[in-house]
Write a protein that binds this DNA or RNA. Structure first.
Lengths: 210, 210
DNA sequence: GTCTATAAATGGATAGAC
DNA sequence: GTCTATCCATTTATAGAC
């Protein structure tokens, strides 16, 4: 049960992530981080070996986030036997609101994008989070939706590409630059809904009134 | 007719762009730039007011690149009266090989992506180059292809989104991280060809053997 | 666990010689 | 147009007091 007042180490990580995600690693000094927390630089060095160590610990802590998503989702999937459009829409939107737009995940992804040119670890994590693993998971899910009879296609991979390309597009266009304002949130929601409608016109099985 | 041996000013810009695009503005020192050119720091200050000035001049020089593309393309378009799939494919691939993958344009875009979080100018240019203007141009071109009878759709904007999302996807996945090796070039070519085939199955008018 | 003080290095920028 | 020399601010990092 170790408990410093309010876990300075975690506060340092949070502050560092916030600043790194805006300005990039090298533009942020230890003073910036400690100053923002009302500490002196030396206090940082009590908790971390050096500046790079903060970055590395941040990356490690997000490894866990990544690995926890697919199993959680698989567990949810197992319970479902029939999927309606409403549920599909909700899950798609939730991927944005609870993951890509979630404050810390969003900050982490911004940081990776800035750093992936000079940092091998950042490059690997960015590609895993944004492409390799995202596509793999989507293939799994869409295959399952095909088996459930909610989607139809003769080429699941192409279908996933169609879907995922738009996700990446919206992410880079709206969620990586500047603040995520309410206006941005509305834009994302509208664009995503339009995209899913379009997607289901092509790959959906339930013919509706629309 | 002013001509320093081989235009040091331009060499500084080239070197700065190369380094900025890899490490980001703040991680590159004046010493890094001058050192790589076999000069002393003070030589840089003869050509530029300060470090920020180098960045600003780089941005200005690319303003011209951006504005020269649509008129050039429009002039080419005016000459054409009939479009075959071969020509369409060629133009799509050329957008990658001669623009997104072209060394300097690619470096500049990488730099913008790194800097757009802290630099207003970078943010504006990135969005213009990658989204606003790219989409506008594509709408123009695809509208023209619809009129020529090469494409058909009841929603040009959606068609453009389908197309452009994949371009942005391929760009961010393959062209913004690490070296653009021959392997990467092949991957891009293959993916793009697959995408265009898929795209024409949906929006093309010429039914072919395939 | 945080502070003061300080070392050591790095980076931006200028003055003036050549 | 480039160099030497130098200045000053910032930054990383450590030692030792509290």
């Amino acid at each position: 049960m170790k408990k410093e007042k309010k876990d300075t180490k975690q506060l340092i990580l949070d502050t560092a992530l916030e600043l790194f995600s805006k300005r990039g690693y090298s533009a942020v000094s230890i003073r910036d981080i400690s100053g923002k927390l009302g500490l002196k630089e030396s206090a940082i060095y009590y908790h971390f070996k050096n500046k790079q160590d903060i970055f590395d610990v941040l990356c490690q802590s997000f490894e866990n986030v990544i690995y926890s998503i697919p199993p959680n989702f698989a567990a949810e999937m197992a319970k479902v036997t029939k999927v309606e459009k409403e549920a599909f829409l909700m899950v798609c939107h939730s991927y944005f609101t609870n993951y890509l737009m979630e404050e810390r995940v969003n900050q982490f992804l911004r940081m990776l994008i800035i750093e992936h040119g000079i940092n091998e670890v950042a490059a690997k994590m960015y590609h895993r989070m944004m492409y390799d693993e995202a596509v793999d998971n989507q293939i799994l899910i869409f295959n399952w939706l095909v088996q459930l009879g909610f989607l139809k296609t003769d080429n699941v991979e192409r279908m996933v590409m169609d879907y995922h390309a738009m996700v990446v597009y919206l992410f880079h266009r709206y969620l990586i630059c500047g603040e995520i304002t309410d206006k941005v949130k509305r834009t994302i929601a509208e664009e995503l809904t339009k995209h899913i409608d379009h997607f289901l016109e092509r790959y959906g099985t339930c013919k509706e009134g629309k």
